[in-house]
Nucleic acid binder design. Structure first.
Length: 273
DNA sequence: CTCTGCCGCGAAACCTAC
DNA sequence: GTAGGTTTCGCGGCAGAG
């Protein structure tokens, strides 16, 4: 197996990804990047303060994403400058590579009948069965990327795309091979690995949903249920945005169970306020 | 009903061994 | 240069929340 998969070297960030030097089996399930604070600080102080075209009203430091007005190409150009996006000179040399990625275009041929597609995109003529699908598709053509990576400044249209991307910075790899302990950031990577390396064929139908994996983006902990994850975050990361985002109804439901589990354990600090 | 988070699929890019 | 496995990400579809 090529060692590149154990020690990633493609795009080292300004602050070294020390966690990437660990073997997968050591970092797979619970992995806390110890330099995450310095990275966030670096980005916050250097890039955000210098981006005069930013969104000062909407950028809370606690937010995982930011409203941005960069175009994707503009963004790539900006990232080439150390003062805008936190890239070092070393990374600036790799910028052509990033640029290639950013302009990568995909021509995806979607199977299915076009006869029932009543809503078509004026820009690319792609057709959709539902208006809301067209509305969502139009975001793809929108130059404004709503969700900005706090590590590298790259923008995404989708929060999940950002969340998935951030794992490349944090080193969190929730999907672990039971056979060789190698870990992956995405499920399809694990399934591809299982199929090619171990010859394990997944027994799922096309597009069949797998069991949801509940991942703590703070440390990489994975739980079998939302309740389990909530309990983990509640105890281990009381200041996590995850707790704030959990709906009140669900939180109340989980809180009752957690209370019975903890049986009088002290509340987290921010809950005490 | 709309919005949005999450998911899987697919493909380009990447990396190392040979 | 090529092969083969991995990484990364764009995007359509689905489903739950509001």
């Amino acid at each position: 197996m090529p060692r590149a998969f154990l020690v990633k070297r493609r795009t080292p960030p300004p602050a070294a990804r020390s966690w990437d030097e660990l073997p997968d089996e050591e970092r797979a399930d619970t992995y806390i990047p110890d330099s995450i604070d310095c990275i966030l600080k670096y980005v916050t102080e250097d890039s955000l303060s210098n981006s005069s075209s930013g969104d000062p009203a909407g950028d809370s430091p606690e937010r995982g994403s930011h409203e941005v007005t960069n175009t994707s190409n503009d963004l790539c150009e900006d990232l080439g400058h150390p003062e805008n996006g936190g890239h070092s000179q070393e990374n600036a040399e790799e910028q052509p590579l990033d640029l290639k990625r950013s302009v990568r275009s995909k021509v995806k041929v979607t199977s299915g009948t076009l006869n029932e597609e009543l809503y078509s995109c004026d820009i690319c003529d792609k057709g959709f069965r539902l208006q809301r699908m067209l509305n969502r598709h139009l975001k793809c053509h929108n130059q404004v990327k709503r969700h900005l990576c706090t590590f590298c400044g790259k923008g995404f249209n989708d929060t999940f795309d950002l969340k998935r991307h951030v794992r490349t910075h944090t080193g969190i790899r929730p999907y672990k091979c039971d056979i060789c302990n190698k870990a992956f950031t995405q499920r399809c990577s694990l399934e591809s690995h299982l199929k090619k390396i171990h010859g394990v064929q997944q027994g799922y139908a096309y597009k069949q949903r797998r069991d949801k994996l509940f991942v703590c983006e703070e440390c990489g902990y994975t739980g079998p249920s939302q309740e389990d994850l909530y309990l983990h975050v509640y105890k281990g990361h009381p200041g996590s945005a995850f707790l704030k985002k959990t709906t009140k109804k669900l939180a109340a439901l989980l809180q009752n169970k957690i209370t019975s589990v903890l049986q009088g354990s002290p509340k987290p600090e921010d809950e005490m306020e």
